[in-house]
Write a protein that binds this DNA or RNA. Structure first.
Lengths: 151, 151
DNA sequence: ATTGAAAGAGAGAGGGA
DNA sequence: TCCCTCTCTCTTTCAAT
């Protein structure tokens, strides 16, 4: 695990809050010169601590009003690779985790409406190895924050 | 819903891929002058289509190796407000959704280890209104992408 | 939406604790 | 190793069109 000092942690916190913070603003925030900050940010990227800089959109403003969680029973004896490939190609699937418990996978889906959800469920059920699904519709999002608080 | 033209969609796609893309690189990518691109990005921010620019970290490199999903049975007759406040203060809770089905809420938790998960579960169970919980441990993350593909 | 000038930010060299 | 200053270059912003 990459060793983070206080300044690295401060930079990561600032960059999580504003991914477009300029090097110069970061540099005054942590009281270091710009080249020093620039080097640190590059190192954090190169080491993989920073996965990527991105932009979060408001799903309901880009016509993705319906969120659902889909639990999937899967016969792990076979075909897991093709299922992974399938999940990658479905752009409305935002998260896919292999889980413990009664089901093998859980998906988080962000789609347009119940119609597009139904179509996606049909495609999921048509996958080799999928033997049952359980859909849970999200009524409202209480919190949704990708940020990580570093100890 | 905010009306997005082709250029807005192209800018959003580029900014999701690289949240620190410079105005000048965006401007050559969409063949528009820099002030025009700058104006568009500002409008997308002001209108809320862009929620925020952020930096995604690798959770396992910042000592958050354990992900779990916690489903919560909750007596909705009472105390939902204090539960929401509680969830906000727990920094290891990354997502909280009100859901349909047997449970009322589901949480996505990203924490250090089974010990910190157990402590968090104790705090959750101590909340007024919580009448049952069901924990699912995430064995592996197949995909996890916040990006939205715009139609 | 564009152009062009001024201001600001970033990259790299060289050197010091 | 980590940091600083200086300088040069690139980027961004603003005003006028």
């Amino acid at each position: 695990m990459y060793k983070l000092d206080k300044i690295d942690k401060a930079l990561l916190k600032l960059l999580q809050e504003n991914g477009r913070a300029t090097i110069s603003s970061l540099s005054s925030a942590v009281s270091l010169s710009m080249p020093a900050v620039s080097e640190r940010v590059k190192r954090l990227e190169a080491s993989g601590v920073i996965q990527k800089f991105t932009t979060l959109l408001n799903p309901s403003l880009v016509d993705k009003q319906l969120m659902a969680l889909v639990q999937i029973g899967f016969d792990m004896q076979r075909h897991a690779d093709s299922f992974v490939d399938f999940v990658e190609t479905e752009k409305d699937i935002k998260e896919c985790y292999r889980i413990t418990g009664k089901y093998e996978y859980t998906l988080k889906v962000q789609t347009n409406n119940t119609g597009t959800l139904a179509e996606l469920l049909n495609r999921i059920k048509a996958q080799d190895g999928v033997n049952k699904t359980h859909s849970i519709v999200v009524l409202s999002s209480i919190i949704d924050r990708p940020s990580v608080v570093i100890n």
